[in-house]
Design a protein around this nucleic acid. Sequence first.
DNA 1: GTCTATATTTCGATAGAC
DNA 2: GTCTATCGAAATATAGAC
Lengths: 189, 189
Amino acid sequence: MTERAERRRRTEQRILEAARKLFADLGFERTTIRAVAKAAEVDPALVMQYFGSKQGLFSAAVAIAPAPVAQGDGGESDVDDLVEQLLGSLGLKMGELPQSSLAMMRSMLTHPEAGASARAVLSRQIHQVGESIPGGDARLRAALMTTIMLGVTVGHQLLELDELREASQADIARVLRPALRAIAHPQAE
Amino acid sequence: MTERAERRRRTEQRILEAARKLFADLGFERTTIRAVAKAAEVDPALVMQYFGSKQGLFSAAVAIAPAPVAQGDGGESDVDDLVEQLLGSLGLKMGELPQSSLAMMRSMLTHPEAGASARAVLSRQIHQVGESIPGGDARLRAALMTTIMLGVTVGHQLLELDELREASQADIARVLRPALRAIAHPQAE
DNA sequence: GTCTATATTTCGATAGAC
DNA sequence: GTCTATCGAAATATAGAC
């Protein structure tokens, strides 16, 4: 019994890995059940058997351990710590960002479910960041800090711009740091 | 003769307008020739007749008047002017950004041709910005300034984040300005 | 020149053999 | 439980009538 269950679990994992890679590389529409099955070396019908539908496979593949953000230990971290946290979360080194996140981001502009998921993740992050910075317009500042990180990640990980790929994570963080701090610290204008 | 040609040109324009809207809203994959034809009130076969293929229609729809960037008059504008130019180009007000640009951006992560086009446009802008700012790492700084604008545009126009939609273009520019200036002005570190 | 009809392909999904 | 075979739908693309 346990052997069977174990074997099935492994097969399922192999399918999910193949699905994450293809969804991350090609997006939802251009990824086919057949291609996933081929990459996982199983029968296409088996994929359907396990996940019900292509959408079900996608949902299972992009399902994420609920955001391991873990900021400080309750919010006493100051603004500069927040900036460092954002810079660290860039995950700019190849493969450091989980495939499931890339899969969701790849399709967020063209697949409704992925778009809703992306909006939820970003809104959550905006809310968290907004709680940590001062100012009456903290919400807007948090939104811009978040979309800045989004843009850099998209440019680097998905569009793979040479100008960003050439640079090290440390270089990018060094240039980005003053920009994020400028937004995080509201000052007289 | 001219009447015929003129009529055809108008029909072609109507098809292109419908295509731009659908490509911008749904992306390449989810946009069908049939839907474009219906929106333009023509026969689906006519679309094929005019543009050859779905890809041909897409290329014609996203083809852009070659970047009316027109910076200053040769490059004597200083760094702060460049920042103002970027902020102004945000085109954050609804519909201010041309539909053709939105159509390209919508599909840039999932359609190879759109991705290549987006990379070309961004590389071009990075190069232009890089020429206008000082410092040995101007290329990286320019890339980050450009991807920052990309992220804000994606968040606002494509993901339609509430936190950005609530704000006015002036508010966004006000918060973003110090961040862009911090990157554009290399300072001792 | 414009549209009707259809060919062709591709893929998601299903039913049944083993 | 896994795979073979196929269904059914949808879309691009083509050929020919009017």
